[in-house]
Write a protein that binds this DNA or RNA. Sequence first.
DNA 1: AAAAAAC
Length: 538
Amino acid sequence: MGRRHARCIVLRASQRLWAQKELNLNNFISLGLPSVLTDSLTAGGFTEPTKIQSQAIPKLMEGRDMMGIAQTGSGKTAAFGLPILAGILGLTGRPRPLTTRALILAPTRELAVQIDEAIRKFAGSKMKLDTVLLLGGVSRYHQVKKLERGVDITVATPGRLKDLMDDGKIRLNETRWLVLDEADRMLDMGFIAPVRAIAKAIGFKRQTMMFSATMAPEVADLAKSLLNEPVRVDASVAGSTVVKIDQRVILSGAKAKRGVLNELLASETEKMERVIIFARTKHGADRVAKNLEIDGHKAAAIHGNKSQNARQAALKGFATGDVRILVATDIAARGIDVPGITHVVNYELPDDPENYVHRIGRTGRNGASGFAITLCDGTERGKLRDVERLIRRTLPVSGDLHLANDTGVVEAPRSAYKKSGNGRPGPRSAKNPRTQVDRRSPAERRPFAEFGKEGAPKSQPHHQPSDAPRTRPAAEGRTRPEGQAPRGVRRDLETGKPMAPKVADGAGKPKQRWGKAQKDALRTGGRSNADRQRGRVA
DNA sequence: AAAAAAC
């Protein structure tokens, strides 16, 4: 009976599979894609378009330009890739030597590799397709060989592409499709000049697709000059994904972080199957990886000082499950799409608060849930506050501010990361020695969780008139010596009038960490980081 | 004072 029942289920499942194959029950068909592509999608197990795919594909098949607000994981690669593949299927003959029919630009090499792999997978084995991947860090030789024969699709990072353009190894005059992926990041990285040069080389007979996580003014500017009456598709999933990520903060002294991390990796409740650990600097990432190895954990590291081969190897080992721990700089904060990451650990807080959001977005993907654990020491309080302001919520904190202000003597007591809650130190015990001398002023001695609220930037009304005496609700009932300004209000030295608080116009927005002049120099000059450092006046 | 991207 049980057996027959089981067989019945098996039969039903196989019938469904058969029906799907036979009748090609693939919802991509309704989007107007040719059968060569839907067949390969079915074979790859893709039958259900994502939100952005069902919105974008029909419009792109009509030849419209597009501005897409979307992040990695939304399925945007297929959203622009499939219409391009469909367009190429409609062309006859081979691409001419030194030309490419489609050009896809990405900000980092890893991202370019991912896009290239995905597109070839969508095309499947039945479609004749010549592609080339143009990125730095590897020999130009094979890239040039492929270009000499002519290619259908080129995926590139701006530096190497511009390099090859200047050497006459690639001509863009026959390029019909241009994609700018992660445009916001490309601008942040100073690629505006090469991107414009590339677009100019292609000319106007093209279909342009631009994708960005945000619609910052610079992005809007670029979109205005590159896109022609674009369709706008918004597939930002801001709330829904973040909700599935369990975020928390553990206070820990800088030197105690190593011990805290080891405890986390060892603890059974955490079930850290695949974890990515973010460090702030390349050197920091190497150091964390080295310490993990010493402490008996197999780990790979990825950052910009590693060779392209080493970077690919690290990523591959992580994706295959060969190593369960990847230590990374913010090179991997965005775009890296390795499935099954259960935990993101911020060993150090990022300099750019936006990167916090991108980092934790490596987990909780495709409906899975994930954990994001941030280790925060005393010097990082400001950065944590910036993050909390950006995401507009206060993160649950455990651990001990005394430990966070650790200057190096304290070993992390278990209670620092086992206990969650009010952020106050647990009772003094052998395990929680609290031998640290507290060097803070009395005003600073408050539970750590309060720090995010200090100065209350998020409750400041944006439009508060600056010439009216400013009062904070919290200051009510508080007595002050005559003539002393309330805390948090700066007064003009001459007039004594209150000035606009520093944070008022930045509330809800991240602080600008680099001077505008430096960012501009980066944007326009296109010089290397090292050049920039050398050229700067000390 | 960082990271990314060209040799």
